[in-house]
Amino acid sequence: MAHHGWGGRPPASDAEARQRIVDATARCVDRHGAAKTTLTDVANELGVTRQTVYRHFDRITDIIGEVAAQGAESFVDRLIAHLRGIGDPAEAVVEGMVFCVRTIPTEPRLSLLLQLTDSDAFGRGATTADVIAYGAQMLRRYPVDWEAAGVGADDLHGLAEIIMRLLTSLLQHPADPPRDEARLRALLTRWLAPALSAGPGRAVRPG
């Protein structure tokens, strides 16, 4: 690990170096936007060479992806806190989607998810197996007894895929004129909630 630059405070470990690169990238993105942030910008922000950054990340998109991922972790914690006390599966899913549509576009690190196109949650990779599995893991944190609602472990992956696809569309192609929260909630309650309101044993399953 290089001991030059770094504002006179070289990192004590590779893990610290990577985190400082991620933090510097976040600052660059705040100033320039994700599309205009380059690896040179990040290196200059840290006072190191491009090669030093390359020792830890192969591409600028990899660093921006990590910025987005760390923002997503904090976001999910806040989402789960927002849903506390909502045990009905239909209400929890609808309210969770309303929260996502309201929150993601207003926060820089979350908005990165909309701009990434290689492998991240709200770009073209939104239906990949890894992202769907992440969505299912997130659903397991909801304050919902999924088994009692007739939604098994395999069903959660299907539900996660539907949510990711729908959320991608709502975020990338908002309604014109825009819907307020009440109208979005009404739309989702009318067309999405019924699939989760059937109760145990009544869900339609593929043959």
Results as ranks from 00 to 15, higher is better:
E147F: 04
A148K: 14
A121V: 12
E181G: 02
P178V: 13
A148G: 12
G207C: 04
P89W: 01
R141N: 11
P143E: 09
D154L: 07
S119R: 14
I86T: 13
A72N: 14
P200F: 03
L171E: 04
P174Y: 08
A72Q: 14
I163W: 08
D155E: 10
Q115P: 04
D180Y: 04
R78K: 11
A203H: 14
I162W: 02
H173K: 07
E161F: 12
D88P: 02
A153W: 08
T106H: 15
D180K: 09
E91R: 13
E91C: 07
F99W: 00
E181N: 05
G150H: 06
A193Y: 05
R124C: 12
L187M: 11
D130W: 10
A203V: 09
V131L: 13
L110T: 02
L192M: 13
H82K: 13
G71E: 05
G96Y: 01
M138S: 08
L114N: 03
E161P: 05
D120W: 06
G87T: 15
A186V: 03
G158H: 09
A193P: 06
R102N: 05
G85D: 10
A198H: 10
P174C: 09
E73Q: 14
V131D: 02
L139I: 06
L187E: 12
T103I: 07
P108K: 14
R84K: 10
A81F: 01
L113P: 01
T168Y: 06
E147A: 14
R205P: 00
R179C: 00
V76T: 11
M97F: 08
L83S: 01
L171S: 08
